[in-house]
């Protein structure tokens, strides 16, 4: 039996490069207007998974993502770096899902991939910073969780040892499997693409992507079935639609406000000796400092 690791990854808008058209009128994110990247901590998670694969010949790394069709990009990206295969959960019915509805959908997809040893993801995604989907998925799968992993010093057939990065220090735990792990940004950076894998998987496509290709891939896919990235819809997951999307999300966005600055009467000064001398005098006289 193989040692199966499922890496949960998310394609996220690069929130470090947000423009004015980033939000739609209804308060949801206009993802189309933003550069999409592999969520940084999910890359750390992929690296920890690949390190186990480096050690174990029987290890299989599967990447699972949920998002629009274009999220297949990060499945390919993961395969270029060493993942064996991947799945894209995609359906319009998922739109508007909060973390609870998202973890429900992900947990159903993970169950389709049973038996697995580890479900590993980044601690949080940079578009929401909630850190909720990992623990919530673990709960839905009814398996234990170990959050904020930084290193995995030991893996056997029966247990795993994980070093956790906490606010005030380091904690090492020993846990049985199956287990859910979330990975902290202090874990090692993900390895780069491997040229051989890039060549091997560069034609990997989802069904939807193939429909939009002008080239006929039929023969290639008959020869190399591993190029197929499966898409899973609500029907494939046998999901209860009431538990997905807006209806399955207990949190609602009541209001979105663009940030307006309360302008203070800011006094602007130069870096001249005179200006700074006066400022320091003022601060000392008003007992703010000194």
């Amino acid at each position: 039996m193989s040692f199966r690791i499922i890496v949960l990854a998310k394609q996220v808008p690069d929130t470090r490069n947000v423009g004015k058209d980033a939000m739609k009128a209804d308060g949801t994110v206009n993802r189309a207007a933003l550069p999409a990247i592999f969520n940084p901590e999910d890359l750390n998670a992929l690296e920890l998974a690949l390190r186990i694969k480096d050690q174990r010949k029987d290890c299989e790394v599967i990447v699972l993502t949920m998002g629009p069709f274009r999220a297949a990009e990060i499945v390919r990206e993961a395969m270029y770096r060493g993942a064996d295969r991947g799945y894209l959960i995609t359906d319009r019915k998922f739109a508007g899902s909060d973390t609870l509805a998202t973890s429900y959908a992900i947990s159903l997809a993970v169950k389709k991939l049973e038996p697995y040893n580890l479900v590993i993801s980044g601690r949080q995604a940079i578009d929401g910073d909630t850190a909720q989907v990992g623990p919530q998925t673990a709960e839905k799968l009814n398996i234990p969780q170990v959050t904020y992993a930084e290193e995995i010093p030991e893996v056997t057939d029966t247990h795993i040892v994980i070093k956790r990065r906490l606010e005030l220090g380091i904690e090492t735990v020993k846990a049985p499997m199956p287990l859910a792990i979330t990975v902290h940004s202090s874990a090692p950076d993900c390895r780069q693409r491997v040229a051989k894998l890039l060549m091997k998987y560069k034609h990997a496509r989802t069904v939807t992507e193939l429909q939009n290709e002008t080239k006929d891939y039929t023969e290639l896919y008959n020869q190399r079935p591993y190029l197929q990235i499966d898409e899973w819809t609500v029907d494939d997951l046998h999901a209860d639609v009431e538990m997905l999307g807006l209806s399955g999300s207990p949190t609602k966005v009541k209001k979105i406000e663009n940030v307006v600055f309360a302008h203070k009467d800011s006094k602007v000064m130069t870096s001249s000796d005179e200006d700074i001398n006066n400022l320091m005098k003022d601060l000392i006289e008003s007992h703010v400092i000194g």
């Binding site: 929130t15 470090r16 947000v18 980033a22 939000m23 308060g27 994110v29 578009d127 966005v253 009541k254 209001k255 979105i256 406000e257 663009n258 940030v259």
Partner: peptide, 8 residues
């Protein structure tokens, strides 16, 4: 969302 909005 990158701090561009305040959500309630």
């Amino acid at each position: 969302f990158g701090g561009n909005i305040i959500a309630t």
